[in-house]
Design a protein around this nucleic acid. Structure first.
Length: 505
RNA sequence: GGUCCAUUCGUCUAUCGGUUAGGACGCCAGGUUUUCAUCCUGGAAAGAGGGGUUCGACUCCCCUAUGGACUACCA
């Protein structure tokens, strides 16, 4: 059996979309599972749409997510089929264009974009194919001398594939089964343009997959309609025996409504659709990314893997290695998946809980430093352990724990109304004395002593505790009170009680 | 308009002819808790419609409907 070799072949026209990330991931999982190679090829045959920095963005994104490239752009060593940017492979394609031309399977066409537009207006549902090519300016209708002189005179032309009408073309798709298409519905696609001496996607893609010995083409469903054309190209080029197998992945859809997930949906609904932040070099506009939103790459990978694939078990948490072991194209679903951002948060929550407090504290520390808070490492780990289960992201930790670092400056009015009774100041003043006499300020010890005091005085437990909490936190939230004061320490705790009594009165 | 693909709870999905149609996210309720959150337990919630095939269809076939993708000298 042929060695498994797959490729992820994005176009550097902007930041990598989250759907593209999933395509890359599925390719990677498939390659790894079969001990094969994962290639990254840059499809930059459209010189007009090139965007600076896009390629670097793609490589960095895959790198962040742990999708390793074995060969091609972004790989440690280039590999034997270099170069892997189509713009750098110009010289290679010409040969195959000539081969098709000589075999009479393609032809030269001079029709200008304006002329084509004219035809589209003139003829409803105009398609450049067997039924219309006789009406156009091409090497099929023009005398060969005419064609040659036009080319000699520098006139721009394209090479089109000459599709034989009424042929049944079968695409064997690993996910969808057999897809049958009649060749009459496919137009004579442009394979090559003289303007920049580059092939179009269709030809470049087939030639490169052939030369790079690709065994499986795993790509988005938007390519399914052009798959028959690609099969035809393999036929015309005489490569049917080594044609890769195809698998067309279902699309990622908008969370609401219908249609393919787009950047606009993210802006509109407030979630990222890109793996990392991206600053558009032309407009200067910044798009938000998952990395900067605080997602762990493992959570992202897990989340994406389950959009369109499932293990067949009821498990949902998978490490990259587990995904590699269990992935199967058989279990990829056929229909598009609406993007559920809420579920993504849940995945990150799961991964956050599974991380060590030490690891989370390290990340959290950076956030604190930005706020010019320099927290003691041991204390920070303790704080993380107290609040991490309440958060989905590390960057939510601040909202859950800011009171550990800053004394409250104001107190929630509703809570004052509900919890601050006339007897409260007296009780809290007594509490200060009780706490002052405690030397071992462990949560366990303070809890025992404070509760004994409350019982002895016959105070209402909730009454004292809620006011105590308000004094420490400023709001009716947070972990167990005695855990809080253990971190705060005696001095700070008493200070906060005094301040609350003074301010609230 | 044409071609192709798809269609199970709101969402992601399991089911490969016989199940009380399962799980997860979200939602609701209850419990735990001195608060909020977490957590635990429970609940509501689905086979687009119509024909076949079959002893029996969510599952196989056909039609309809709906949705999507594609339809460029873009990828």
């Amino acid at each position: 059996m042929k060695k498994v070799r797959v490729r992820f072949a994005p176009s550097p026209t902007g930041p990598l979309h989250i759907g593209g990330v999933r395509t890359a991931l599925f390719n990677y999982l498939f390659a790894r599972q079969h001990g094969g190679d994962m290639l990254l090829r840059i499809e930059d045959t459209d010189s007009a749409r090139f965007v600076a920095g896009a390629e670097e963005y793609i490589v960095e994104s895959l790198n962040w997510l742990g999708i390793a490239i074995d060969e091609g752009v972004g790989a440690k060593s280039q590999g034997k089929h270099a170069p892997y940017r189509q713009s750098e492979r110009k010289a290679i394609y010409r040969k195959y264009v000539d081969q098709l031309l000589q075999a009479g399977l393609a032809y030269i066409a001079f029709d200008t974009p304006a002329e084509l537009d004219g035809k589209r207006v003139e003829i409803a549902n105009f398609q450049y194919d067997a039924s219309t090519r006789g009406l156009m300016s091409n090497s099929l209708t023009l005398a060969s001398e005419n064609v040659n002189s036009r080319i000699r005179n520098g006139e721009q032309y394209v090479v089109r594939i000459k599709i034989e009408p009424n042929q049944e073309i079968t695409v064997h798709d690993l996910i969808r089964g057999e897809v049958l298409v009649n060749s009459s519905v496919i137009d004579d696609k442009v394979l090559f343009k003289s303007s920049d001496e580059l092939p179009t996607y269709h030809l470049a893609n087939v030639v490169d997959d052939y030369l790079m010995e690709i065994s499986h083409v795993i790509r988005g469903e938007e390519w399914l309609p052009s798959a028959p054309l690609h099969v035809l190209l393999y036929q015309y080029l005489g490569w049917m025996d080594v044609m890769p197998q195809f698998a067309h992945l279902p699309l990622l859809l908008k969370p609401d409504g219908n249609g393919k997930l787009s950047k606009r949906d993210g802006d509109r609904l407030g979630f990222p659709v890109f793996p990392m932040n991206w600053k558009d070099p032309k407009t200067g506009e910044t798009s938000f990314g998952y990395r900067e939103a605080g997602y762990f790459p493992e959570a992202m990978v897990n989340f994406l893997a389950l959009l369109g694939w499932n293990s067949g078990t009821e498990l949902e948490i998978f490490s990259m290695q587990e995904l590699i072991d269990q992935f199967s194209l058989d279990r990829v679903s056929k229909s598009g998946a609406k993007f559920d951002y809420e579920k993504g948060k849940w995945f990150n929550h799961q991964y956050l809980q599974s991380k060590s407090n030490q690891e989370i504290a390290t990340i959290f520390q950076k956030i604190l430093l930005e706020k010019e808070i320099n927290a003691d490492a041991t204390k920070l780990i303790k704080i993380v352990s107290l609040v991490k289960e309440r958060a989905n992201f590390v960057n939510e930790l601040w909202a859950q724990s800011s009171f550990f670092f800053q004394q409250p400056t104001e107190y929630d009015a509703k809570t004052i109304q509900k919890r601050w009774k006339p007897e409260t100041p007296v009780q809290l003043t007594e509490l200060i004395d009780v706490l002052f006499d405690i030397n071992n300020f462990s949560a366990e010890n303070t809890e025992t002593i404070v509760k004994e005091w409350i019982t002895a005085k016959d105070y209402n437990l909730g009454g004292v505790m809620n006011a105590f909490r308000l004094s420490l936190v400023g709001e009716p939230k947070g972990p167990h009170i005695f855990d809080i004061i253990e971190v705060l320490g005696k001095e700070d705790t008493i200070k906060r009680l005094r301040k609350a009594i003074e301010i609230i009165g």
